Amino acid sequence: MKKVFLSLLSATFLALGAQEAAAQTPYRTAIGIGIDVGDGPTLVGPQIKHSFGGANAGNAQVLFGDDIITLGVDYSYNQQISGTNGLGWYVGVGPQLTFVDDRRWFGDEDQTYFAIRPAAGLEYKIPTAPIAFHFDWKPWWNLTNNSSFEPARFTLGFKFTIK
């Protein structure tokens, strides 16, 4: 069983590696505004996304809400959807720190939360303009202070792209 699993894992990495060489994000770096919505508070703030070449990219954001500040970074695997001009999909994951100064949202005063945020979404880069948009499902998996999982979280992003 172990040999079969390792063989399948190796084949998967080889297939992804072959696709990665051909996959390119439509821009190198983008800066803009991120909006995190869903159950709980709505958060808004600046974000930056940078392509590391091929299908690999990183995203960082600082989001603000009522008595809440969230710092997060994500890795994402990005692919363009063939037959479209500027539309792509991505999956990713990253850590997040949330600082809360109020009992209103999470029940404790002055708490820091560490969470993991997986993401799956779509991104559209307007081919004739330096503008991109994204929408993703990004659940919040809190690992501290009475661990919890919030599946109903989504993000919207509006970015200015830099080639």
Rank of each mutant, 00 (worst) to 15 (best):
K2T: 09
S7G: 10
S7N: 10
A11N: 07
A11P: 00
F13Y: 09
L14S: 11
L14A: 14
A15Q: 08
P26A: 12
P26N: 12
G34C: 00
I35S: 01
I35K: 00
G40V: 04
P41L: 04
V44M: 01
Q47A: 11
I48K: 03
H50E: 01
H50D: 00
H50V: 12
N59T: 14
F64S: 11
F64M: 11
F64I: 14
D66S: 14
I68K: 09
L71I: 13
Q79M: 11
I81P: 08
G92A: 02
G92L: 02
V93N: 00
Q96A: 11
F99E: 09
D102K: 12
R103H: 10
F106H: 13
F106M: 09
G107N: 06
Q111M: 13
Q111K: 15
T112K: 11
I116P: 03
R117M: 08
P118D: 06
A120D: 03
A120Y: 03
Y124G: 03
A129Y: 14
A129E: 13
H134Y: 15
W137H: 11
W140K: 13
N142W: 01
L143W: 01
T144Y: 03
F149K: 10
A152T: 10
L156H: 04
G157K: 04
K159W: 00
K163F: 02
